[in-house]
Amino acid sequence: MQPEFHISHREEDDWTVVEIHGEIDIHTVPRIRDHVVHRLETGHRRLVVDLAGMTFMDSTGLWLLVGIRKRIRSRTGDLRLVITNPEVLRIFHVTGLHQVFPIHGSVESAMTE
């Protein structure tokens, strides 16, 4: 049985905050990609991806974030991540992606720094 997964978004100031709860893996990546791409296609250029509710991420999730970053940069946008899980932070440090993505401890700090 697949663990519960939920994705939602809200507009806050001039940012779009995408919240992801559950696992990011080969099964959920297509839903996340569609959700985010739709936001970008409707003109949203400043995105905070809130991963505080994420319980697991595999390599397809990492590649998805890299792809989203490329799309946003091609539109002269801004992408910031919220990561609070030490295990997930470790993945970003081991892969060197902590140098690619601005990583924050809260949505508020992501939108203001």
Rank of each mutant, 00 (worst) to 15 (best):
V17N: 11
E12D: 10
H104G: 01
E12G: 15
L89T: 05
Q2T: 14
F56H: 07
W15F: 04
T42D: 10
L81Q: 11
R45G: 14
F92T: 03
F56G: 12
H6T: 00
I7G: 13
E23H: 04
Q2K: 10
F92D: 07
E11C: 09
T76F: 09
K70N: 08
V17L: 03
R33W: 04
T28H: 01
R73M: 04
H27N: 09
E108G: 09
G67Y: 02
S109R: 13
I83C: 05
P102V: 04
F101N: 02
G67N: 15
H9S: 12
H93S: 12
E108V: 07
Q99G: 08
M111W: 03
F56E: 05
R31V: 10
M1K: 13
V37L: 10
V36I: 08
T28I: 04
E113G: 13
T84I: 06
R80G: 05
L47Q: 08
D13F: 04
I7D: 15
L81A: 13
L89P: 08
V49T: 14
V18P: 04
R39N: 11
V48E: 07
V82M: 08
R46T: 15
D78I: 05
T60W: 08
P30Y: 08
G105S: 06
D50W: 01
V17M: 04
R46Q: 09
H44G: 06
H21P: 00
G105D: 07
S109Q: 10
V66E: 05
L51F: 01
A52D: 00
V94P: 13
L64K: 09
T95D: 15
